[in-house]
């Protein structure tokens, strides 16, 4: 084949691939917006579901998702950052310890999310929760059943490898010369990490963790057995309460509802809210990165 023709063909193929991606994004957005736009209003956001979830709003699902996301972040981010600091700064690359942690992180990242759900059920509810009841409540059932704490911690385990990888990458962007400069001035290793490495990689750490957390916010499988409820007449007031979640709510309404077709607009609107939530987390990440880069110059 003529070389020039071959070149254009290759360019054409890359262009088509890009167009497919754009098409997917645009159609997801278009279908969701067109289908859900009309039902999206203040009462939809602020009211409880009504009439067997065929009418009313999604307020408890929004609150549940938000609270779960916050607890998940509080658990996963510090743990992930500390692990990443160990891997990037303290671990000897060739040590068995570092290799084991890396293998564990990689394996954790490819475990299907439903397995995390089963693990949460067995470990948090069946083991930790049951034992807490035995010790604290004299055997009365409180923690040994699904609730928002166990669901959030299960979700935290799911996002942990993503946080670790993102933070470690951010930390590794700090050049060795910066660490040497600090150490040569008589700084200890921890002073170097605290004063040079972490401030220099804060934008990467923030964006990486926000992206990881926003990924978790929409997951359903890990919370199926660990805390998400079909329908609740109240929002969670304690860590031992169950909660409603946007993702699970969409699944319920589209498969278990008494009248799936009639609730289609509500389903689209719920999907739209979930998308807006994750997109806005992403947007926050982009803004943080932009701001910090600008300040650094």
């Amino acid at each position: 084949m003529n070389r020039n023709i071959k070149d254009s063909v290759i360019e054409g193929i890359t262009l088509v691939s890009v167009l497919v991606i754009i098409l997917v994004i645009v159609s997801i957005l278009a279908v969701t917006v067109v289908g859900g736009w009309k039902s999206l209003n203040w009462s939809f956001l602020s009211e409880f579901p009504k009439d067997g979830m065929t009418k009313g709003g999604i307020f408890p699902a929004i609150v549940g998702t938000a609270v779960m996301t916050i607890i998940m972040a509080v658990a996963a981010v510090p743990f992930g950052v500390i692990t990443a600091i160990y891997l990037a700064e303290y671990a000897n690359e060739k040590s068995i310890m570092a290799k084991t942690i890396r293998f564990a992180v990689k394996t954790l990242a490819v475990v299907p999310s439903i397995i995390f759900g089963l693990f949460g059920l067995g470990f948090f509810i069946g083991f930790i929760g049951k034992n807490m009841d035995g010790l604290l409540n004299g055997g009365e059932l409180r923690w040994g059943q699904p609730n928002i704490l166990w669901a959030s911690l299960t979700m935290a385990l799911l996002t942990l490898p993503v946080v670790i990888v993102a933070v470690e990458e951010a930390i590794r962007t700090i050049p060795r010369e910066m660490r040497e400069a600090s150490l040569a001035l008589g700084a200890t290793k921890w002073q170097t990490i605290k004063k040079v490495v972490l401030p220099g990689s804060v934008s990467g750490i923030l964006t990486g963790t926000i992206l990881a957390v926003s990924r978790g916010a929409g997951e359903v499988a890990p919370i199926l057995f660990t805390g998400a409820a079909y329908f609740l007449s109240d929002i969670p007031h304690s860590l031992s309460d169950q909660f409603m979640s946007l993702g699970y709510h969409i699944y319920i309404m589209s498969t278990q509802s008494s009248n799936v077709d009639a609730t289609l607009p509500i389903q689209f609107a719920t999907t739209l809210v979930l998308l807006l939530l994750t997109f806005s987390l992403n947007a926050i990440a982009v803004v943080i990165r932009y701001r910090i880069r600008k300040n650094a110059k």
């Binding site: 400069a181 040079v196 220099g200």
Partner: peptide, 8 residues
């Protein structure tokens, strides 16, 4: 050092 390395 060979390459000047001021902190940001």
């Amino acid at each position: 050092f060979q390459k000047s390395n001021p902190f940001a």
